[in-house]
């Protein structure tokens, strides 16, 4: 275990990147990222495609190994504490893909049990799904009948059931209609209020300003600036974003 640096809010960070770097062949996908996200913070990573947002999330998940630096979850180095760090994490990808022939309840039961929650019982599972915004009738239906928004809600339910300390979201509202998107943001907000640290990669500036507590703008693998969402308006955020992602750095 490594002693963590203090986060933006002063509390010990639950998600932390130290000089985190990832090269794919000769291309640097992520360049010396330093980041610390405290409990109750929602950190939104903004940036164009290929900026390094998904790579950052994959590094926190241990899906790829860093070329240099460290990704830490609750102070645990992901590279050396794979399982322990994953016990503390929940992950919702852009498309939450579930077992289509099973119901929402069965999917939740499976992933929650894999996450270390044991057998939760049908009543509790339905309760969690309802808390995540799915209605009780839908919870018992096969997932093959679900919309994307409903599957994202099951993803949130998995995170709730897991009682994770940190949540990684990879463009979770992409493709959702505004209502579903708004519902999703409300759920993230509730998790944040419970002290969960959230790292969300997104293209949605509006959602980032609305849901996030901090925003980091990435370009060509580098974190080019960080902002507190309380200190900028929607229009300012868009202007700053466009200033930083105009093609003037180029890949190294």
């Amino acid at each position: 275990m490594t002693e963590s640096q203090e986060s933006h809010t002063g509390a010990a960070p639950l998600l932390e990147a130290r000089g985190l770097t990832k090269d794919y062949g000769g291309t640097r996908a992520l360049d010396s990222l330093d980041l610390a996200i405290a409990p109750g913070e929602v950190y939104c990573l903004l940036g164009p495609n290929g900026a390094g947002k998904t790579t950052t999330i994959n590094l926190f998940l241990g899906f790829v190994a860093p070329s240099a630096g460290q990704a830490l979850v609750a102070g645990l180095n992901v590279s050396t504490h794979d399982r322990e760090s994953k016990r503390r994490l929940a992950y919702i990808p852009e498309q939450v893909m579930l077992y289509r022939n099973l119901s929402g309840i069965e999917n939740l039961e499976y992933f929650a049990a894999l996450g270390g929650q044991g057998s939760l019982g049908r009543e509790r599972l339905v309760e969690i799904l309802v808390e995540a915004g799915l209605d009780g009738e839908a919870a018992g239906r096969r997932v093959s009948t679900y919309s994307k928004g409903m599957r994202q809600k099951v993803g949130i339910a998995i995170a709730i059931a897991k009682e994770a300390d940190a949540l990684l979201l990879d463009e979770p509202t992409s493709g959702l209609d505004p209502t579903a998107s708004s519902e999703f943001s409300a759920l993230v907000e509730r998790l944040r209020n419970r002290g969960v640290a959230v790292l969300m990669a997104t293209h949605d500036l509006f959602r980032a300003k609305d849901t996030g507590t901090r925003v980091g703008i990435m370009h060509y693998g580098r974190l080019v600036t960080e902002l507190s969402t309380a200190e900028v308006g929607h229009a300012d955020l868009e202007r700053i974003y466009l200033e930083h992602v105009s093609d003037n750095g180029g890949p190294r």
Binding site: F63, A90, Y91, P93, L114, G155, L168
Partner: peptide, 9 residues
């Protein structure tokens, strides 16, 4: 489903 599975411990 692999990504969701392997995000578990």
């Amino acid at each position: 489903t692999l990504a969701l599975t392997l995000s578990q411990p």
